[in-house]
Design a protein around this nucleic acid. Structure first.
Lengths: 171, 171
DNA sequence: GGGGCTTGGTTCAAGTTTGAAACAAACCTA
DNA sequence: TAGGTTTGTTTCAAACTTGAACCAAGCCCC
């Protein structure tokens, strides 16, 4: 199969997207590092926890929500725990499991950092977009994310085909 | 000033965007690591060089095009040079300067890796979007990138106001 | 033409990410 | 119920990124 190269328009879109996503992540990381002393991912961990029932969540679920690897999460949680932002607890149902629980201090830090963070997201992103574009961005992003998650699932299911999920024998 | 929190729609867009950009970068990095033995950024360096006159470019210009810090580039170029993908040359006009020049081997590696890379970009991104959405993505990205670059420039100009760029005395 | 700032680039230490390997608990299934 | 697989998490080494500090070489300007 001969390569389906990118059209001129696709190239422009791809390059613009690359530049934008790099610059945006950079701006946000810098702001949070300045004002909260942690990179964006770490802030997101606290943020997700803060919205969970009882402000706690299993490691795997947390990793899944944030779309990061478990090992990356382990490292981040270790640091956040050292800093007192959260605590690791044993899971009551599954002795293998480990649960990250936001501490009061973690919640306080989050509350203090949130306004600055939102302001950065707003001024870097939403202030530059029309209302219509916000909707477009959501749809585009959702389409991409959905596709890639399916891919991931498919790949996981396919790897090492020996006696795999014997669902209604699909040759 | 009270915080302008994100609306429900903005939150959805923001989360979808975050997920998509993480997943996309991951997918691309994984593919390139597999097939070309280097992460996306390193591939991009070769790619940019390959399109320059004489396949060479000054470090600072390269960093500027890729929107990365000089120090990050230095590290990457050092590795790529070790691997024989490019060579560092002295700049003829400016003795401080250093120029990265793509080697034939680097070019060959790039050519070999390009089809797989394009296929990944296509299947992860463009295959999921309508033609209209490609245009929207470009506009959205361009708006964000432009805004953030201006911010960067403004910040650089503002820092340490003592006797700065004495353009037509503003304030 | 000698300070003093700016620019181009690298270096260094500290922090983060990656992927593979290790472990242990849970889940089959013969 | 023992043995083999899967699942949840951590560990480890190697690779990468960050930001501040550094070193030259250019630039200015009195």
């Amino acid at each position: 199969m001969t390569t389906r190269w990118l059209t001129a328009e696709e190239q422009r879109a791809w390059r613009a997207y690359m530049a934008a996503s790099l610059l945006l992540e950079d701006a946000i990381d810098r702001q949070l590092q300045q004002d909260a002393g942690m990179p964006h991912l770490y802030y997101s961990i606290l943020s997700v926890l803060s919205e969970c029932p009882e402000r706690r969540l299993r490691m795997t679920d947390l990793a899944e929500r944030l779309k990061i690897t478990r090992s990356r999460l382990t490292y981040a949680v270790t640091r956040l725990e050292k800093d007192g932002m959260l605590r690791r607890e044993a899971c009551r149902y599954d002795k293998r499991g480990s649960v990250a629980a936001l501490t009061d201090e973690g919640f306080a830090v989050l509350e203090r950092a949130a306004p600055g963070h939102v302001e950065t997201v707003r001024s870097s992103l939403f202030d530059r977009l029309s209302e219509e574009q916000v909707g477009q961005l959501e749809e585009i992003s959702a389409a991409i994310a959905q596709g890639l998650q399916e891919d991931g699932a498919r790949a996981a299911a396919d790897e090492v085909p020996w006696r795999r999920r014997s669902s209604t024998a699909c040759s």
